[in-house]
Design a binder for these strands. Structure first.
Lengths: 341, 341
DNA sequence: CGTTATATGTATATCATTCTACATTCCTGT
DNA sequence: ACAGGAATGTAGAATGATATACATATAACG
């Protein structure tokens, strides 16, 4: 292995706390104290140490620090990046954390449980101060176990009874309810929902919550609910979307569980000269950037990702700071009206 | 601070290499050897140690490991996530690294030089084994400095003379050339390029390379080149795009430096009933997911992000393994033909 | 069978910091 | 002037691994 930070090559060896202590003429412990903002440092000492730090261009080694104290680093675990809803959320979290003096490092779960798990373990092994998990595949049970080892806040995972970790969610049930209300207010009655095959999925999944919200709203309006299901997420759904559009009993309006399917749907409909909304009104979920393109113009439920991320990081910092009781908060969604409805 | 991995709470203290050694009846050094796959371990020893590791569910602490050896962790630094070209690249890099037994942790530079720099420093301080940097804002000079402390490979940053770090790039100059050729083959002659204000930008920037490629191709075809420039990236460019479409001397075909602008452009054109390609042919760059939507149907240059990511990570692993001479490779782009040209 | 080389396992210094326990100095009020 | 307490600084153990240098066992060879 290449030897960096060694003294060969003319490359200066790394500046350590010892060098600073020597230069400032104080003990290593003293330097550590001012670094940590600990109790019992005089103004004079602080000045001396800070001067030396500046002069030597010293930066503490996170690696060494991790052995005993905190690292000021938070791990963010995301399922993948291709869902356009996630980047915004991750960026917002990263920014909020930076403002609180924490670095965010993002790990990718590749939509696979074992990889997610090993990623969390890796974050624990890195002695990160906490972990922010977005839309995990792994179960609440496993999360509970990891939560004993590191503070955890989970986004997009409905589990309001979890004791050892916190959750921050958009109120998906309400979001779906609002979507149906938006359709009702435009005069539509024959409103179906397009979900995906969630056979056996726990209620923690956002898609399940959205179905519940849809059913709530239809019941409240005294209308008959109809949920249609697309193939699992990893399959090709173009054929299924085409079938839906060709069906004789095609509804007058449809609420789609995610823009992931709503965008292709509106796209195919337009290509097939099915009028949107004149023949079919479409309401999506996530308010992804594409849906805002005038050419697409998809009405969609906005999860307010920025506030969601802020809330979640806030909760995580509290937990790192010592809170032990679980908190579970919901963020208000709203409907972004566009031409498709 | 909350005390995790301590013995209170009934939560078991962390399993260390010492516990494994004791359980297996061997020395700590021996366990370390099998962990590192080092020379001089018998089959018997290996079995004993691996059994104990399994039994105790032991995982080495990356933090402790970082103090002396390697961490098997690579930092990936991305400018931001909103450019739809980046997620694919990052995922590909993360996957390739995982296949080689490395974990990737992604840091976000928030499009700001100081944040990028502090992110790289943080990765050095975390004793990561190497850093993969995508489209940095910071200068080559600064990169050279960091490269003395940690192996670095940079993507989307043309600097073929860099000595201390490697670069992997899509051949942007050639990509632009191919775009113009594609337009020529369709019979267009009046082909302009839409770039952005790169006043004073170094040739390292991909946009500059693409301009050069455009100029090459036009010269080769004996046609007059015309480069139009949009406002800087952070400004609102809708007005500028509208102006471009309204101009009396609007070209017959336009090569746009990035889908970031090409997608809004085709969108506005379609909304204004300007025929694409009947009135204006458009060719973009990046082949972003949106451009493939039939409704958009944008011809675009594909950078082959997967191969780009593979090549770059491959180079980084070589460098971590000891290579000192710089390497600079280009990946072949190709044109993805769609309805807009 | 003795000598040398090789394979295998161990002892221990080392990495850069934190943090507890302790020593020292400085006030402050009587 | 002095006891008592607060404020400030220091020594050194602890963190959990790696890796060098060494000791020992085993094999190979003349």
């Amino acid at each position: 292995m290449q030897t960096f930070q060694k003294d060969n090559d003319g490359a200066r060896a790394r500046v350590t706390i010892r060098h600073v202590a020597e230069d400032a003429g104080v003990s290593v412990a003293a330097v550590s104290k001012v670094l940590r903002n600990a109790y019992g440092v005089s103004a004079l000492l602080r000045t001396k140490v800070e001067t030396s730090i500046e002069k030597l261009n010293y930066r503490p080694s996170v690696a060494a620090r991790a052995m005993r104290g905190r690292t000021n680093t938070i791990g963010v675990l995301a399922i993948e990046l291709s869902n356009p809803f996630l980047p915004g959320l991750i960026e917002a979290a990263s920014n909020t954390l930076a403002d609180s003096g924490f670095k965010a490092l993002v790990g990718l779960g590749r939509s696979a449980q074992p990889i997610e798990a090993s990623m969390i373990e890796s974050m624990i092994d890195n002695r990160m101060d906490g972990v922010l998990i977005i839309a995990p595949r792994i179960s609440g049970k496993v999360l509970e176990r990891y939560a004993k080892q590191i503070p955890i806040v989970v986004i997009a995972h409905h589990e309001p009874d979890a004791q050892t970790y916190d959750t921050a969610n958009s109120d998906d049930r309400k979001g779906a309810y609002l979507a149906v209300e938006a359709a009702l207010s435009k005069g539509y009655r024959d409103i179906a929902m397009l979900g995906y095959d969630i056979e056996g999925s726990p209620a923690t999944i956002v898609a399940v919550q959205r179905e519940l919200g849809y059913l709530d709203a239809m019941r409240a309006a005294g209308l008959e609910a109809r949920v249609l299901r697309l193939p699992p997420v990893d399959a090709d759904r173009t054929a299924a979307l085409n079938d839906f559009l060709s069906a004789l009993d095609r509804p007058r309006a449809v609420f789609v569980w995610s823009d992931l399917d709503a965008v292709p749907l509106i796209n195919i409909a337009r290509m097939r000269d099915i009028g949107v909304p004149s023949d079919l009104a479409i309401i999506g979920y996530d308010n992804s950037p594409v849906s805002a393109l005038p050419l697409v113009g998809l009405t969609s439920v906005d999860q307010n990702p920025v506030q969601l991320a802020r809330t979640a990081t806030q909760m995580l910092l509290e937990r790192i700071d010592g809170r032990r009781e679980a908190r579970h908060v919901l963020v208000e969604p709203h409907v972004e009206h566009r031409g498709s409805s």
